[in-house]
Amino acid sequence: MKIIVCLKQVPETNNVKIDPVTHNLQRNGISGVINSFDVNAIEAALELKDRYGAEVVALTMGPPDYEKTLRLAMAMGANEGVLLSSRGFAGADTLATATVLAAAVNKIGGADLILFGRQAVDADTGQVGPLVAEKLDLPQYTYVSKLNLSSDGQIDAVRMLDGGTVRVNGDLPAVATVRSELNEPRYATPRNIKLSFKKDIVVYDEKDLDLDDSEIGQAGSPTIVTKVYTPTATPKVTETLEGSAKEAAQNLLTKLSEKSIL
């Protein structure tokens, strides 16, 4: 089995500034760390590796210093790291990022399972995993909180959604995005840290991936950020319905109908 774990490096600080022109996050000069949800994705891959045997490939897109994120994944137990790095990739939105990642998955030779963290803690879109699934025409399982493979090689997962959980089964290959509830990530051991720095990292650019300039970077990004702001909180209103139980129930039905909820 082959598992690809897609990783993102995010700014180390919570005090991220917004570019006044592009309205994108300013990442220059801020040291990066691995997106915390992606550590759960690595752990998920390694647990499957421990149980069933697998080759785990860590994949990320970014400047050369994103190598450290791949080294961390390898220090935790990933077999190899692949860095997608080119000036042409700069300024990518979620679609252009997914285009490059999907091309890289094909370049690597595909995988039985492609894992992502549920979202990145900087931009919080949660879109790249699902977009990669669409690009590769693979089934997707988002917000996974339990992940197993059944004896017939199917994915057996529980998705944790607002208000409940859903158990889902399906064929591999597939894409899954994982929640932090899925697992407790292991530590990178000192020995594996040392060994991870002795491994080569494969680097691909757009030429290696056979991508056109119009598909990548800003040119391949239809997203336009017009404004970034903190939403104002809407005050919550609590209303107590008076009267007998029957009257209160009738009153409740009327109010729900008025709000087109019923």
Partner: peptide, 8 residues
């Protein structure tokens, strides 16, 4: 390597 160990 030292930095990664330090963080770990």
């Amino acid at each position: 390597e030292q930095q990664m160990l330090h963080q770990m």
